[in-house]
Amino acid sequence: MAGEFFIEFEQFVMKQRKVALVTGCANGIGRASALSLARSGMDLVLVDIEQEGLDVLRKNVIDLGSRSAVICGDCQDEHILDEVFEFAQRDFGAIDVLVNNLGRSAREHASSFLDSSPDTWSAVLDISLMTTLRVTHRAAPSMKRRGWGRIINMSSDTALIGDEGLADYAAAKSGLLGFTRVLARELGSYGITVNAICPGAIKTRAHDHLKPSILEKIKSTIPMNRVGEPEEVAGLVSFLSGDGASYITGQALAINGGRYML
C-alpha cells in the first residue's frame, strides 16, 4: 500500500516539475542558465558538443536535486536532434521551457564584412540562427498541445548596436528578434510566451581571450563600467521561465549594464 502511494506521489511530483531544454550549455551563459533553472526546481535536458563540460554540469545539476538527460552532440545535426527529443520524451514526457542558447560568432575568423567569406557567414548563420529554428520547430508543438510553454532565444545587443567585425553574427542575432516576434504572435493564445534576451559584454570564454586594451575599451561603453557575469543573464532566463513573467511576450530584453538602452 505504502509503496503504491509512493509511486503515485512520485508521479504527481514529477508532473509538477517543469522540464527545460538548454542548448549549448557546457559553458558560459548556457551553463549558468541550466544551473539557475535547476535551482528553481526544473529538470533538465542538456545538449552540447563538449563532453567534459557536460559531465561537470550534470553532476552540479544532480547536486541541486534535479534530474537530467544529457546528450553530447551537435544541435546542427538532425540525427542528434532526433536523439535529444527521443530522450526528452522518454525521460520526461515533454519540454516545457526551451532556452535556445546555442550560437557563436566567427571568433578567430571574424573580420570586416568586405574581408569575410560566404562560407563563414553560412557557418555563423547556421549555428546562431537556423539551429534555433530547428530546435524550436521540434519543441513547440507539444507546448501548444499542452497550452503552456516558454521559449527564450539568446540574441545579443550586437543585434541592436552592430559591432564592427560581426556582420554575420549581428545578422543572425537580429534574425532571432524577428523570429521571436512572429512566434510570439503565432503561439500567444496557446499560453506560450516567446522572448529574446540581448546580453551585452559577459564574462565567458570568448571574453577571456580579449586583450586588456580591448576590454577597457568595451567597459568604457558600458554605463555601469563593468562586464556582466553569466549568472546575471541566467537570472533573467530563470525569471522569464517562471510564473512572474506570464505576461511578457514578443520582447527583446537587453541585459548589458546600460550599453544599449532598449
Binding site: 510570439a184 556582466g228 537570472g235 527583446a252 530584453l253 541585459i255 546600460g258 538602452m261 532598449l262
Partner: peptide
Amino acid sequence: IFLLSDEASLITGSALAVDGGRVFH
C-alpha cells in the same frame, strides 16, 4: 519586484514591456 531585486543587477536603462504581445519592443 524582479527589477527591484539583485536578480536584475545587470539590467539598467531598459523599457521592459509586459503586455502579452502588442508592442514587440
